[in-house]
Nucleic acid binder design. Structure first.
Lengths: 255, 255
DNA sequence: GGCGGCGATTGATCAGCGTCAAGGTCGCGC
DNA sequence: GCGCGACCTTGACGCTGATCAATCGCCGCC
């Protein structure tokens, strides 16, 4: 699928590209294209070189790390997150395996063209710096989440964050299968089940992928919520920090 | 301490600044200065705004995250790592608390001047992007290290990484107190002691802060060493990735 | 309708690791 | 020299969470 004018407008408005020089942008887009991927497509492989910068326009992506025979979900990406930015900038191997968890529409920009544009354009440099700072910040949050909290605290924090992100209503929709959520939270599916069950007395009801929080305030006392760990806006890596800075809290689709 | 010519030369050669325009560099350095800090100085506080970009020229820094009453060491920084780059770029609060663990010489650059220079100079933008990509990469490695390995595997991997980094001799010098190492590896000091003891049968001898590895190859079988987790060059966050790319393995002082 | 498979749950058991408490060693200052 | 404190070590115990196994419910398919 080659890029049409309406696509270009949409892309131009992305935070990564909005400050880029017209000429540089045009050259960059000459090699870029949109592609639709069915659910389950593997976009990157941990340890393999990345040749494209991805920007997720519609759909969802799961980032997974693995070593030996173990694997763990490290993050979930939503529109309009970028993917592979760090490995493209460093011209190094992919850090994680990325897989679509829904049918997805993705912008693909050739890596070498992107690196070249980065050398020429200060606006792009600044945008990339901001994006990567957000990624780093998200990763550090995740690290703190894992090292400083128990599994149950992580679950409660996650539920409260989703609760806030989805508008504060009692019903919260889980954005992924429980198995994936368990891995993201650093626990086994069995343990996640038990953790949910243990929250029953605190007003948490589960029905499929909908969770109802009857007493969010009470929950908060279980979780040690912490603004330096739980991001009020984004899920993790990328996309999160920028919005806060811009006076954010601009309506975000309920993930 | 204001900046003299030899200082400026040294700073100019740092990866962050080597591609910056002369004029921009001069303006940036007008507000910058060098400062010596005694051991134990707190440079940043988690959650508080950061007003300076730090570059560690001599000494060592510990990065710590905390929540409620728990705390954990997230990384150790060595020359010539940068500190606060992400929070300066985002103009947001500090992610971690930073403290010198030795007397240290540090370059301090005012944050707003740095942000302004970032808007003007593509060379700086690229350098910052590379540095932050390296930070992100380091944080992801650390996350995988924590989620995919047991405490003992983390210790063995750490020892092997230090072994390689210090030139491959049998004797490895621990770069920090055991208490700090334990926290960095996500375990208690007691558990670290026991883990060390359990490695005795595998040729690991401990004497104070020097560890002797009699059979490194055998150790590797315990550890699941993984190039996508263990960084051959740097310790973590910052400084690591760039060198690899440049055909690295340029002699690195044994930390 | 019946069957097969996947995901989620539940229970029993176990290992890893944290916690608490008690030494032990070293270095420093009086 | 003596005593104190910081750091590390060792042991006993308990909790968190992983593992293994069985069951249930749901959905798609034959």
């Amino acid at each position: 699928m080659s890029l049409e004018a309406p696509d270009l407008l949409r892309i131009r408005a992305l935070p990564l590209f909005e400050a880029v020089n017209d000429g540089v942008f045009d050259r960059l887009m000459r090699g870029a294209f949109l592609q639709r991927f069915p659910r389950g497509s593997q976009l990157t492989t941990q340890g393999q070189p990345d040749n494209f910068l991805f920007v997720l326009l519609e759909g969802a992506i799961e980032l997974e790390g693995s070593s030996s025979d173990r694997e763990s979900t490290l993050a979930l990406l939503w529109p309009s997150a970028s993917l592979c930015l760090a490995s493209i900038v460093l011209d190094g191997p992919s850090l994680m395996t990325a897989r679509t968890t829904k049918g997805s529409l993705i912008l693909m920009v050739p890596g070498d063209a992107f690196r070249q544009a980065l050398e020429e354009d200060a606006g792009l440099g600044r945008a990339v710096a901001e994006e990567l700072a957000g990624c780093f910040s998200g990763a550090v949050r995740s690290l703190k989440n894992n090292k400083l909290r128990t599994a149950r605290e992580r679950l409660v924090s996650y539920l409260l964050a989703q609760h806030q992100r989805q508008g504060g209503g009692a019903a919260v929709k889980l954005p992924c299968r429980k198995r994936v959520l368990a891995s993201l939270l650093g626990m086994t599916p069995e343990n996640l089940s038990r953790a949910f069950a243990s929250l029953g007395p605190h007003g948490v009801e589960i029905d499929g992928s909908t969770v109802t929080l009857r007493e969010p305030e009470g929950l908060a006392q279980l979780a040690r919520p912490d603004p330096m760990i739980d991001n009020p806006i984004g899920e993790s890596f990328s996309q999160a920090e920028r919005e806060r800075r811009r006076g954010g809290r601009t309506a975000i689709a309920a993930h």
